[in-house]
Design a protein around this nucleic acid. Sequence first.
DNA 1: TTGACAAATGCAACCCTGTTGCGTTAATAT
DNA 2: ATATTAACGCAACAGGGTTGCATTTGTCAA
Lengths: 144, 144
Amino acid sequence: MKNKNEILDRFKKDGFRLTSTREAILDLFYKKSKTPLSCQDIQKQLKQKNISANKTTVYRELEFMRNENIIEEFQLDDGVKRYEIISNHHHHAVCLKCRNIKCVELGKELESQEKQIEKQNKFKIISHSLEFYGLCQKCQGVKK
Amino acid sequence: MKNKNEILDRFKKDGFRLTSTREAILDLFYKKSKTPLSCQDIQKQLKQKNISANKTTVYRELEFMRNENIIEEFQLDDGVKRYEIISNHHHHAVCLKCRNIKCVELGKELESQEKQIEKQNKFKIISHSLEFYGLCQKCQGVKK
DNA sequence: TTGACAAATGCAACCCTGTTGCGTTAATAT
DNA sequence: ATATTAACGCAACAGGGTTGCATTTGTCAA
């Protein structure tokens, strides 16, 4: 995970342009609380900065950043695509009540289990996704 | 996981009806290769048996069976809902090329990791989903 | 500074999965 | 045989995401 200016320089070097939308979206990924963002999330947060961006534009920008290996895409149980900066590998804890998403890190225990699965199933693992669903601290306290 | 007739009896006892669509879908879950099924999968397989079922009907039947605790729903990276019989807890190995889905079992190692996450994040875990993405045996051999 | 080029954008129309309302069909009990 | 109501099909809709195309705009070279 490089810093923002490094990335903008690389874009320019590769013939891509520095537009306000591009920079604003990159800002969201870099500055904001490290929660993954959906297209809608991005549009809302841009609006708060008085930047309007068509959803097509946002999706294309996300596609672009994905190709540039800056962000990655994943899905939760709601079928909505979410994106986050590529950094340390981690997983997600999703609150079933407030839908808040927290990134959590695990040790390397999964690696040995992956090897076991590869051997047993003759399946070459390229990536995995692990999400925990439950109740965040706040929502545990609330009576339903 | 009970057998099919037990389930049909229970339906009847609870005032639900035994329709050909219901039985056919239940058959798919019981007899077919133990791969999860999407609504489309189900419609295609029914068609092969010369049974036509409207997608609304299929979705409602799936909802019904979910309420009856016979099947469970989950998502992969494509945002399509899939369903499978509730049985031993397991995970999925998804081939990125042919999209075949294989169920794989893991030991109980994840449990201790869950406890660790619960403690560290004060997050009460209710369920989790773990999918492996990669290449199945067949697709590893194929040159792209 | 201007002009040319192509990257980036917006819009409308579309695709796909999944859902809802409502009138009809048919499984079951009497 | 009839009444009841679960199950069904259809059409219309919802929401996330994509595509084609015309327009705008960032960049760079003259």
